[in-house]
Nucleic acid binder design. Structure first.
Lengths: 221, 221
DNA sequence: AAACATTTGTCCGTATGTATA
DNA sequence: ATATACATACGGACAAATGTT
């Protein structure tokens, strides 16, 4: 029997991982609101697992800054005002800058092809007004660059920050615009030239620009 | 009854936190060797808690890259060759650079006093050849700057990396030298002048220099 | 002030899954 | 290939701690 080319092996997730992904998704998309108190037994029933994996998932989310666990008191969803982009984006920009620096010398032709294809997808999503699709593709594009670095420290620092970006997106604090398409193009071209400094500069500004734009749109804060 | 001024409230740790700190310490100082298989029941007995908090602690350590958990197979201490500094330090340098940038505009006189005192301590430790004491003070100094930023994303990204620095130190891959004293002085002076760019530059080079030194001392890798 | 109710933290027994013989 | 042995993952019950009535 011929095996379909794009067959994705069904990934069997442990109960803990299912709980983690589901709860994180619920936090990010606003199903679980900031400040909301969490009842682990309730969540366990909703997800269809016991308290243990839910508890474990909550501890991970706590480490990533999505929930706050006060021993013996309560577990709550962390408050996240949209203004948080000013806190989140500088460290993220720095790390993405490093990623670009590390990727520039080692990038291969096939990576460039893939990045260009992703940027096409990204542009299409922006132009069709599907900003959620744009967000997901944007994440894939940056993630592809990060994985070129083969650096677990970088990856594990960026991953939770990316999740927070998605959270802020659902709070309408992050808006992806036309400008990002051009920035991606610039970044890809710098990577193609193995231009370390320029790649780093563009990657950083791609993440720092939204801070200015948000500040300009919300001068009261 | 007069309450002693420097009375430190005895911090009651949960079993999980005790387990986490103890196991991390054992990994860092080499009591638990890279590659070693972990038996949670054994650890639980040694620490004096049950398997659950040990399991939870191991999951956190897994998130931080200290242990590797293969579901249903084994939990092992991550292999960490000394050459890892070349992986760890670039992202850490970038984050410490951001920390310096964010701290420079908001730093207060009392912070500068504290930082100078810490650098004195650091110098004393270096000169007396107590490199372990130097490491601990170095950590405090950088941590003080990071906390000025009031940025949880930055803090939670840097914390596990700092733990890895200590791990590499115990593997004799990180050596603190006289040069660091001067770099700290430069950094403190830049912070005092609220010179964002210079503070960032010095902070980064303080972390990037050891990579060069390690590479020079181990040309075979 | 004391007892209560709720929620979290901990324990340990069992089942599932993997790697071996 | 099947069976066996092992370690981990999960579940549910208990205990401790907090805040409240």
């Amino acid at each position: 029997m011929p095996i379909p080319a794009n067959y994705a092996a069904p990934v069997y997730l442990s109960a803990k991982d299912r709980a983690f992904q589901q709860i994180q998704e619920w936090i990010i998309d606003g199903t679980l609101q900031p400040g909301e108190k969490i009842n682990d037994m309730e969540l366990a029933k909703a997800i269809g697992v016991s308290r243990t994996p839910v508890r474990e998932a909550l501890q991970m989310l706590s480490l990533h800054g999505f929930v706050s666990m006060k021993p013996g008191v309560a577990t709550t969803i962390c408050d996240t005002e949209p203004g948080e982009i000013a806190k989140l984006f500088p460290p993220l920009a720095a790390l993405e800058g490093v990623a670009a620096e590390l990727a520039a010398p080692v990038i291969q032709a096939e990576d460039l092809v893939a990045l260009r294809a992703l940027n096409e997808e990204f542009a299409a999503a922006i132009h069709s007004g599907d900003s959620f699709a744009a967000l997901k593709v944007d994440e894939q594009l940056h993630d592809r660059i990060v994985r070129l670095c083969d650096n677990r420290y970088l990856e594990s620092a960026i991953a939770p920050m990316q999740a927070h970006v998605r959270h802020l997106f659902f709070q309408q604090a992050v808006i992806l615009t036309e400008k990002s398409i051009h920035e991606h193009t610039e970044l890809i071209e710098a990577l193609e030239r193995h231009d370390v400094d320029e790649a780093s500069r563009v990657a950083k500004s791609n993440w720092l620009r939204p801070i200015q734009e948000y500040a300009a749109a919300h001068p009261e804060q």
